[in-house]
Simulated scan of single mutants.
Amino acid sequence: MAPIIHLVRHAQGYHNLSVENQWIRDPDLTDLGKQQCEELNKQFPYHDKITHLVASPIRRTIFTCQFSFPQEVKAGKRIIALQDAQEVSFFPCDIGTDLEPLKKEFGDLVDFQFVTEDWNKKGPDSKYFPEPQKLEARSRTTRLWLRNLVKEAGDDAQVVLVTHGGILHFITEDWSGIELGRGTGWKNTEYRSYQFIDKTGQDPNASLQELPESRRRRQGSEIPLTQTEMAEMRAAYESVLTRDLKECMKKVAQLYAEAWK
């Protein structure tokens, strides 16, 4: 059997409750978010097959992984933090905590070997600056990293990656279902399962394809978008992303100006 990647969006965080809460730095999960993790744990059918746990270094994704896959954690699987899987925006809720405090908070639960000291710096010169070309590039890097991980683990590898609603569309190259007001078509703690399209491992893009069972579970008999419709959805999302980036940078400039009065 070819390796499988289970992609999961994080549980509800406090930033999901209001626009104002998007200014909370690296927020916690809500009580409902913790309940969502418990429900995902009950519903997820592949616990006994999971070989690796991976999460964005943002705190809500680490917590979601910890609380949704406690059997795997108890069995000794450390959560691998993957910085290229962090969320897309420039808002404080999507700016992660510095590395040393993260290490102190999570201890041996998380493997931070792939996280650099500047992982949460998202200025214009950073690879994490939220413009479409950079988001596409680091999503490709994420897929290549995952492909290398399962290649080393063998054909029976099944990986869970807990990440964010925005970057998931870039990772999957699937723009269907996006609600522009929410910035994603993924629900909190929703999971979808994928395999690499090219089984030879030669595809430079390492593109993923959703498994039929996974698509049926969430879409039923709904007709998939055409390539033209998919391109239109992506263009609309990137337009909103660019608008939000400008608004956020303007707000940050205002805050700095007020602080220095």
Rank of each mutant, 00 (worst) to 15 (best):
Y128W: 14
Y128N: 09
Y128C: 05
F129T: 09
P130Y: 08
P130T: 10
P130K: 03
P130L: 04
P130D: 11
E131F: 01
E131S: 08
P132W: 13
Q133L: 10
K134F: 02
K134H: 08
A137Y: 02
R138C: 06
R138D: 04
S139R: 02
R140W: 01
R140N: 04
T141E: 12
R143L: 07
L144W: 01
W145V: 05
W145G: 14
W145A: 12
L146A: 05
L146F: 12
R147K: 10
N148S: 15
N148A: 12
N148K: 15
L149P: 02
V150R: 01
V150Y: 02
V150W: 03
V150P: 01
K151G: 14
K151L: 09
E152G: 00
E152H: 12
A153C: 01
A153M: 07
G154M: 05
G154E: 08
D155I: 00
D156K: 04
A157K: 11
Q158R: 15
Q158A: 11
Q158M: 14
Q158H: 15
V159M: 03
V159W: 05
V159Y: 07
V159R: 11
V160F: 05
L161C: 05
L161W: 06
V162S: 08
T163I: 00
T163W: 09
T163G: 03
T163C: 13
H164E: 10
H164G: 11
H164C: 03
H164T: 09
G165R: 06
G166M: 05
G166S: 08
G166A: 11
I167N: 01
I167D: 00
L168H: 06
L168R: 10
L168Q: 09
L168E: 02
L168S: 03
H169C: 11
F170D: 05
F170Q: 04
I171Q: 04
E173M: 07
E173L: 06
D174L: 10
W175R: 06
W175L: 08
S176N: 13
S176F: 03
S176Y: 07
S176L: 07
G177I: 03
I178D: 02
I178S: 02
I178C: 11
G181D: 08
G181C: 00
G181P: 00
R182E: 05
R182S: 00
G183K: 14
G183P: 01
G183I: 05
G183A: 06
G185A: 02
G185D: 00
W186P: 01
W186I: 03
K187S: 10
K187M: 14
K187E: 15
N188R: 02
T189G: 07
Y191F: 15
Y191A: 13
R192N: 14
R192M: 14
Y194Q: 01
Y194G: 03
Y194I: 09
Y194T: 10
Y194W: 11
Q195P: 00
Q195S: 12
F196Y: 13
F196H: 09
D198P: 13
D198H: 06
K199M: 07
K199T: 14
K199D: 15
T200V: 04
G201Q: 12
Q202G: 12
D203L: 08
D203R: 10
P204M: 15
P204L: 12
N205R: 07
N205P: 00
N205C: 04
N205T: 01
A206V: 08
A206L: 10
A206C: 10
A206G: 06
S207Y: 11
L208P: 00
Q209D: 13
Q209P: 00
Q209V: 09
Q209E: 14
E210T: 04
E210L: 02
E210M: 04
